[in-house]
């Protein structure tokens, strides 16, 4: 698992950390069932705050890619296939694009819903 972050970037560090894990799942270098390094260790290694790392891990949990268990740390869940991780990446790219166009959240959801119903 390779973490690369740029503290001078505008992207929050937690998001950058989540993106590293997502990318690693997407390219197959981290597989389902694998345990991620403990948040404390990642924080110490990168020289960032532990809560920053935990924030990144929490968004990965919300995306359904990892599981956070007390005492066992962060584990990549069985359903976290490379395809699933890439899908999350596409969704984030969609949101970023919509934001740069000035779309509201409702408008983004409408776009997705329309493509869902149109796709069937």
């Amino acid at each position: 698992m390779l973490f690369r972050v740029d503290p001078s970037s505008n992207t929050p560090l937690g998001d950058q950390i989540a993106a590293c894990v997502r990318g690693a799942v997407a390219d197959g270098s981290v597989r389902a069932g694998e345990r991620l390094p403990a948040a404390r260790d990642v924080a110490e290694s990168l020289g960032v705050n532990m809560h920053t790392v935990l924030r990144g891990y929490q968004s990965l949990r919300a995306e359904g890619l990892i599981e956070l268990r007390r005492g066992r740390g962060a584990v990549v869940v069985a359903g976290a296939t490379p395809g699933r991780a890439r899908l999350v990446e596409h969704a984030l790219a969609l949101v970023a694009e919509a934001r740069s166009l000035g779309l509201s959240d409702d408008e983004v959801v409408t776009v997705v819903r329309t493509s869902l119903s149109g796709g069937i």
Partner: peptide, 13 residues
């Protein structure tokens, strides 16, 4: 390749 200012950490069990 590391960008200027980029911080990297590799870890594996």
């Amino acid at each position: 390749s590391l960008a200027k200012g980029e911080v990297a950490s590799w870890s594996r069990p």
